[in-house]
Design a protein around this nucleic acid. Structure first.
Lengths: 194, 194
DNA sequence: GGGGTTCTTGACCGTACGGTCAAGAAATTC
DNA sequence: GAATTTCTTGACCGTACGGTCAAGAACCCC
């Protein structure tokens, strides 16, 4: 979609729309949250929405992309200076938990995106990247003999499953501390890998 | 909702509607799949739908309840005669994978249900039961010294996370064999617990 | 085969939604 | 300060949806 250039003011509006819409989507669901609801909640006219986005779907995809980028950036930043694969895995898990702790509502959006065909491909693209990162570390760990031999992709998927689920159930629903949940996730995953 | 008595023929129709709707919801999403689409796909009039269900929402909740019951029944049946907690956990995992292998599309419905406030409570009720089952086995395992000390609920959640994610990504998306995926899940979970 | 019940039809209704657009306000540029 | 571009308004449009209902078909029981 050909996106026109925006001024600084315009970029801010765009961010405002995305942030507010993300919160509403996470709380009430994508479909039940109407465009009218989003703009009226922000006190602006409907035209504003369609000035910045071509459609409601496009907005959702942009939110999704932003979120995935943010999460990945947090992970990369956390493990940047760590050479040991096991430690990298641990730091990655902790960074993910931390990030989700600060962006609780986005877990809901990822979850929803997986359930609709038109959003699933976009979600998958981001997940493939996260998976590839994890797989690399697992392979390194196998080479070093710290991880039992097994299909690295399956092991990596298992870790993602633990992280996703604990984020949802313990951090998002039960409001537990991301640091403590991360301790449990790290212990479980490292045990599961060895 | 006061449900009237149904004849054998009526019960069959009801099942037919639920099965077909579940398949469509899983494939296209709950909201994008209209009632008109469901009935026309079955070659019946719209009145049939509203004879058996009060609303689209109620249908979804019934599908959800049925699915959760089916899964739990499969798990209970699998572990019925096994006294050892570790083996019970293993058999429970295998039974879950097996069941999801035969009901792939339902994983999507569970996923979606979690994202909308009006369905989340119903989903949660079923999950609490599954969690309680798992917690019991984990506690038994701790008593027996086969599982490291830790919050049983967190460990149980971690297992559910592994199962859910591997079902989605490996069985549903990649079409892998439930038995093999179960092997990996069991290995990862038992490692994570010990 | 008549009378009652269960089930089916599909046109119809009200509404709420995503999206458009002509008109104009603000900001920016010269 | 006029011209131009960026942004905003909100009434409006077409449509598709969930749900209703009067009418009737199918089935069942005596």
């Amino acid at each position: 979609m050909e996106r026109r250039e925006l001024t600084a003011r315009g970029k801010e509006r765009r961010q405002q729309l995305m942030a507010y819409a993300a919160a509403r989507f996470a709380e009430g669901g994508f479909h039940p949250t109407s465009v009218a609801e989003i703009v009226s909640g922000l006190g602006v006219g409907k035209g504003v929405f369609y000035w910045y986005f071509d459609s409601k779907d496009e907005l959702f995809l942009e939110i999704l992309k932003d979120a995935q980028q943010g999460l990945r950036r947090a992970q990369q930043h956390a493990i940047a200076d760590e050479p040991d694969p096991m430690r990298r895995i641990e730091l990655g898990i902790r960074a993910s938990m931390q990030w989700f702790g600060e962006n609780r509502h986005l877990a809901n959006l990822f979850q929803f995106a997986a359930t609709e065909e038109r959003f699933a491909p976009a979600l998958r693209r981001g997940q493939e990247i996260a998976l590839a990162d994890a797989v690399k570390h697992v392979k390194d760990g196998i080479v070093q003999g710290e991880i039992r031999d097994g299909e690295p992709e399956v092991l990596a998927h298992a870790m993602l499953g633990v992280i996703n689920h604990l984020v949802r159930e313990l951090i998002h629903v039960r409001g537990e501390d991301p640091g403590e949940v991360a301790d449990a996730a790290v212990a479980f995953c490292l045990g599961g890998l060895s």
